[in-house]
Amino acid sequence: MQIHLKTEVRQNYKQVFDAFDEQLFRKLAPPYPKLKLLRFDGSEPGDVVEVELQTGIKSFRWTSLITERTITDTAAWFIDEGQILPPPLKLWHHKHLVTANQTGSTIHDIITYTTGSKIMDLLIYPLMLAQFSMRKPVYRTIFG
Score class of each variant (00 low, 15 high):
L91G: 00
D73A: 13
P33E: 01
L123D: 01
Q15D: 15
P31I: 04
L24A: 09
L123V: 15
F25R: 12
D121G: 05
W77A: 01
L53M: 11
K136V: 15
T7W: 02
P31T: 07
L24M: 04
V49Y: 00
L127Q: 06
L127H: 04
P45H: 03
E81L: 05
E50H: 12
P87K: 06
S105A: 09
G144T: 10
S64A: 02
Q11S: 09
F40P: 03
L85Y: 04
L53I: 12
G104M: 07
D18M: 02
Q54L: 13
G56M: 09
F78N: 03
A100R: 14
P86S: 03
M1C: 11
H93R: 15
P33I: 01
R39D: 01
D18N: 14
T55P: 13
L123A: 14
T63Q: 13
R26W: 03
E52A: 09
E81V: 10
Y32L: 06
Y32Q: 14
I142K: 10
I84T: 15
Q15K: 13
K6C: 02
L89Q: 02
S117A: 07
L28D: 00
G46D: 10
F20S: 14
T63E: 13
I142V: 15
Q2I: 11
I119V: 12
I3S: 03
R69T: 07
L85C: 06
G144H: 03
E52I: 10
V51M: 05
P45C: 02
I79M: 00
D41P: 14
I142H: 05
G46Q: 08
R26F: 01
K27R: 10
P30I: 05
I111H: 05
G104A: 03
D41C: 11
D109H: 10
T55H: 12
T67E: 02
L65V: 12
I57V: 05
R26T: 10
D18G: 09
